[in-house]
Protein backbone atom coordinates (compact mmCIF):
# COMPACT_ATOMS: atom_id res chain seq x y z
CA UNK A 1 0.00 0.00 0.00
CA UNK A 2 2.89 2.34 0.72
CA UNK A 3 3.91 1.85 -2.93
CA UNK A 4 0.72 3.69 -3.87
CA UNK A 5 2.02 6.78 -2.09
CA UNK A 6 -0.61 9.49 -2.33
CA UNK A 7 -2.54 7.91 -5.25
CA UNK A 8 -5.47 6.93 -3.02
CA UNK A 9 -5.92 10.50 -1.78
CA UNK A 10 -5.80 11.90 -5.31
CA UNK A 11 -8.33 9.36 -6.61
CA UNK A 12 -10.64 10.27 -3.74
CA UNK A 13 -10.23 13.98 -4.55
CA UNK A 14 -11.25 13.24 -8.17
CA UNK A 15 -14.40 11.45 -6.91
CA UNK A 16 -15.11 14.35 -4.56
CA UNK A 17 -14.88 16.82 -7.44
CA UNK A 18 -17.23 14.64 -9.55
CA UNK A 19 -19.82 14.97 -6.78
CA UNK A 20 -19.12 18.69 -6.37
CA UNK A 21 -19.56 19.27 -10.12
CA UNK A 22 -22.92 17.46 -10.10
CA UNK A 23 -23.92 19.62 -7.14
CA UNK A 24 -23.13 23.00 -8.71
CA UNK A 25 -23.59 22.42 -12.46
CA UNK A 26 -26.88 20.50 -12.57
CA UNK A 27 -30.21 22.27 -12.09
CA UNK A 28 -32.33 19.29 -11.11
CA UNK A 29 -32.73 19.11 -7.32
CA UNK A 30 -32.74 15.28 -7.17
CA UNK A 31 -29.54 15.22 -9.25
CA UNK A 32 -27.99 17.72 -6.84
CA UNK A 33 -28.78 15.43 -3.91
CA UNK A 34 -27.20 12.48 -5.76
CA UNK A 35 -24.09 14.65 -6.24
CA UNK A 36 -24.10 15.48 -2.53
CA UNK A 37 -24.26 11.75 -1.78
CA UNK A 38 -21.26 11.05 -4.03
CA UNK A 39 -19.35 13.86 -2.32
CA UNK A 40 -20.19 12.42 1.09
CA UNK A 41 -19.11 8.89 0.13
CA UNK A 42 -15.77 10.26 -1.10
CA UNK A 43 -15.15 12.02 2.21
CA UNK A 44 -15.85 8.72 3.96
CA UNK A 45 -13.37 7.00 1.59
CA UNK A 46 -10.77 9.64 2.49
CA UNK A 47 -11.15 9.01 6.23
CA UNK A 48 -11.08 5.23 5.83
CA UNK A 49 -7.87 5.64 3.78
CA UNK A 50 -6.30 7.44 6.77
CA UNK A 51 -7.13 4.41 8.94
CA UNK A 52 -5.54 1.78 6.70
CA UNK A 53 -2.31 0.21 7.96
CA UNK A 54 -0.08 -1.66 5.52
CA UNK A 55 -0.22 -5.39 6.28
CA UNK A 56 -2.91 -4.81 8.91
CA UNK A 57 -6.25 -6.53 9.29
CA UNK A 58 -9.74 -5.42 10.34
CA UNK A 59 -9.78 -4.20 13.99
CA UNK A 60 -11.44 -7.34 15.34
CA UNK A 61 -9.25 -8.91 18.02
CA UNK A 62 -7.94 -12.38 17.29
CA UNK A 63 -7.39 -14.78 20.22
CA UNK A 64 -3.76 -15.81 20.66
CA UNK A 65 -4.80 -19.48 20.50
CA UNK A 66 -6.50 -19.01 17.12
CA UNK A 67 -3.58 -17.03 15.89
CA UNK A 68 -1.37 -20.09 16.52
CA UNK A 69 2.32 -20.23 15.77
CA UNK A 70 2.65 -16.58 14.79
CA UNK A 71 1.55 -15.49 18.29
CA UNK A 72 5.12 -14.43 19.04
CA UNK A 73 4.85 -11.41 16.77
CA UNK A 74 2.01 -8.94 17.47
CA UNK A 75 -0.91 -8.75 15.04
CA UNK A 76 -1.22 -5.46 13.18
CA UNK A 77 -4.71 -3.95 13.15
CA UNK A 78 -6.00 -1.02 11.11
CA UNK A 79 -7.00 2.12 13.02
CA UNK A 80 -10.59 1.74 14.36
CA UNK A 81 -11.23 5.45 15.05
CA UNK A 82 -11.90 6.59 11.44
CA UNK A 83 -14.26 3.61 11.07
CA UNK A 84 -16.28 4.69 14.10
CA UNK A 85 -16.48 8.30 12.94
CA UNK A 86 -17.56 7.26 9.43
CA UNK A 87 -20.28 4.93 10.72
CA UNK A 88 -21.78 8.01 12.34
CA UNK A 89 -21.33 10.03 9.13
CA UNK A 90 -23.14 7.45 6.97
CA UNK A 91 -26.19 7.39 9.24
CA UNK A 92 -26.30 11.19 9.51
CA UNK A 93 -25.92 11.35 5.71
CA UNK A 94 -28.99 9.25 5.06
CA UNK A 95 -30.96 11.35 7.58
CA UNK A 96 -30.07 14.59 5.77
CA UNK A 97 -30.83 12.93 2.42
CA UNK A 98 -34.32 12.04 3.67
CA UNK A 99 -34.85 15.65 4.80
CA UNK A 100 -33.60 17.01 1.46
CA UNK A 101 -35.82 14.67 -0.54
CA UNK A 102 -38.91 15.62 1.46
CA UNK A 103 -38.11 19.30 0.73
CA UNK A 104 -37.86 18.36 -2.98
CA UNK A 105 -41.31 16.72 -2.81
CA UNK A 106 -42.80 19.90 -1.28
CA UNK A 107 -41.05 22.13 -3.85
CA UNK A 108 -42.53 19.97 -6.63
CA UNK A 109 -46.01 20.46 -5.11
CA UNK A 110 -45.65 24.22 -4.74
CA UNK A 111 -43.99 25.04 -8.09
CA UNK A 112 -44.81 22.04 -10.30
CA UNK A 113 -41.12 21.54 -11.13
CA UNK A 114 -37.83 20.51 -9.51
CA UNK A 115 -35.60 22.33 -12.03
CA UNK A 116 -33.76 25.20 -10.37
CA UNK A 117 -34.00 27.72 -13.23
CA UNK A 118 -37.77 27.16 -13.61
CA UNK A 119 -38.29 27.61 -9.88
CA UNK A 120 -36.33 30.88 -10.01
CA UNK A 121 -38.31 32.24 -12.96
CA UNK A 122 -41.60 31.16 -11.33
CA UNK A 123 -40.90 32.85 -7.99
CA UNK A 124 -39.85 36.24 -9.43
Amino acid sequence: MIALGLFNYWAVIVLMMVGFYTLIARGNLVKKLIGLNIFQTSVILMYVSFGKVEGGTAPILIEAAEHGAEAAEPILYSNPIPHVLMLTAIVVGVATLALGLSLVVRIKEAFGTVEEDEIQSASL
Partner: peptide, 21 residues
Protein backbone atom coordinates in the same frame (compact mmCIF):
# COMPACT_ATOMS: atom_id res chain seq x y z
CA UNK B 1 -9.20 -1.04 3.43
CA UNK B 2 -10.18 -3.20 6.47
CA UNK B 3 -13.23 -1.11 7.41
CA UNK B 4 -15.72 -3.99 7.48
CA UNK B 5 -18.22 -2.23 9.77
CA UNK B 6 -18.29 0.82 7.49
CA UNK B 7 -18.66 -1.51 4.49
CA UNK B 8 -21.82 -3.22 5.62
CA UNK B 9 -23.33 0.01 6.91
CA UNK B 10 -22.65 1.62 3.52
CA UNK B 11 -24.10 -1.40 1.68
CA UNK B 12 -27.26 -1.40 3.81
CA UNK B 13 -27.79 2.35 4.25
CA UNK B 14 -26.06 3.89 1.21
CA UNK B 15 -26.98 1.33 -1.43
CA UNK B 16 -30.24 0.19 0.19
CA UNK B 17 -32.19 2.85 2.08
CA UNK B 18 -30.88 5.86 0.11
CA UNK B 19 -31.85 4.21 -3.19
CA UNK B 20 -35.34 3.39 -1.90
CA UNK B 21 -35.81 6.99 -0.65
Amino acid sequence: MDAVDVAFTEAAVGAGISTVL
